[in-house]
Structure formats: structure tokens, C-alpha cells
Amino acid sequence: MTAIQLKNVSKTQGSFQLKNIDLNIERGFITGLIGENGAGKTSLIHLILGLKKPDAGDISLFGDHAVEAHREALLNRIGFVFSEDRFPEKMTVPQLKKILKRFYEDFNAPQFEHYIRKFKIREKQKFKNYSTGERMKLSIAIALSHNAELLVLDEPTSNLDPNFRIEFLEILQALMEDENMTILFSTHITSDLDSIADYIVMIDEGKIVFHEEKDLLLEKYKKLKGPVEILDAQTEDLLTGIKKTAVGFEAISDEHRALEELYGSQILTEQLRIDELMHHLKKGKDV
């Protein structure tokens, strides 16, 4: 069962283009969307939320292809967070709450108030007096307060302080105890995804570079360290992103098993981080 499906979707906006995007976001899992700024993450999210229409291709949400006709019903099931706040500056929490109550069929006011208190959001202040972190918290509180079964989060952690970031990731994981819950999470702080993401989608220049189970990705690619002496033309063929220093070399390889067999304990194999992997794959493509 897919929560979000894009088939051959294209969209041109000015000089930027999303090209033939095929994407299946599995229901019941956390998918991380990574890519550099301007890679097309936000455009993709705007398409999913029905804010933009694709030039070509088909989008379906929860298996429903009539996204335009059922826009209201579908958006009721989605909680969203934008990378930048889009709140009316002069409003306050109580005013916004009244609006949200009317818009969301299933708006859970007590839960919303619970999050407002838990996140220490100032109720009486106008939004223009909020810090970026506080705006983001408000955004998150809204997304979590109408019983959504799909969360589409665009860079939700970028303006959060580290403490709250951890709290937020824990909340997301608690939500995932419900197997109908799906989270699509775009971020450039990829350490958010190292632990909790099930799938990783990497997008670059409007195209999907890969869409893979995170565990499989991290098993495939490893960081290798070893003495410079063992590097020769053949070994270097199996390695990318080689960095040589006085104390040895460091590189990334998807042939780490072969190299381990060849060199045994001379080589140290380490788990990669997602940002290292992203950097590596991006560079590999540019070469």
C-alpha cells in the first residue's frame, strides 16, 4: 500500500525542472528526502500537497488518483510543515485555532493545546514576535493535531534547537507505532535520518538519484581506512573520494568486502553517515 505515488511526473518552473519523477512512498514507514538546496525537494512537496499541478504525469495519494476532485478530503489526512513559516503575522494562537477548527474535519483542539504547552509556545503573542524556532514548533503542533495519517515535512528540523530536535524525532517515532502512519521528511540535517528513517530518497537537479532502504544503503557503502601503501591503480578503482594523509587514507567503497578479504586487518571498515554518502554519490555523479 502506498501513501504517495508519483508516476512520470514532470514540472517546469522558470529555469527549474522536475523530470520524470517516479516515486512510491510506502505506507507505515518514515522516508527521508535528501538533496542539496535547490535540488527540488520543496517543489516535490508542493506537488504532493496539491499546491502545484504537474505538467505531465499522475499523482495519487492513499491510492486515490482523483487528487483534484478529492483535494479537501485528502488534505484532511495530511499534516504539513513548510521549511519557512507562512503564518499571518498579526494573528495569535487562539485566532489561528478558530480557523483550524473550521478547516480540519478532525481538528483535535485538546491535543493542539497540549502541544502548545509542551512546546512552550507563547499563546498571547502575535506570530511576528515569534522566533523562527517557535514558528516551526507551532507548525509542528498544527501538523500533529488533526489526526493526520501522512506527515509531509519540509526541513522541519532546520531551525530547531538540538534539545527540541531530539524531542521532535522521538514524537515522530512514537507516532510510527501506528502502522497506518506515514512520514515523508525532507532535510539537509541528515543525521536526523541516520537512526529513524526506513527509506531514503535522494533528489538532485530535479531527478531522483536513488530510493533505497536505508539499511541496505549503509550496508552497501562503507568507509574504509588503511595505510597509503596498499593503494595502487587496481585498489583505487574500487574506491572513491580517496583522501590521503600522513597517517593513511580514507575512502568510500561499495566493494568493501573484496577489499577486506584482500587486505584483512590492514583495513578498517566503518559505518558511513548519510551525509557522507550523499556527498559521495553527488561527487561520483559530477565526475
Binding site: 518514515i30 512514537a174 537512526s195 529513524i196 526506513d198
Partner: peptide, 19 residues
């Protein structure tokens, strides 16, 4: 514990526990 519960408690992904 359920897969989802264990994933949450260990702070790891659901697929990892599933596997």
C-alpha cells in the same frame, strides 16, 4: 514487543527491527 514499539524504544528504523 511489537516491531514498531521496539523501533521506537531503540530509536532505530522500523525496517531494521522488521529484518
Amino acid at each position: 514487543p511489537s516491531m514498531r514499539r521496539l523501533a521506537k524504544d531503540l530509536g532505530i528504523s522500523i525496517i531494521t527491527t522488521k529484518r
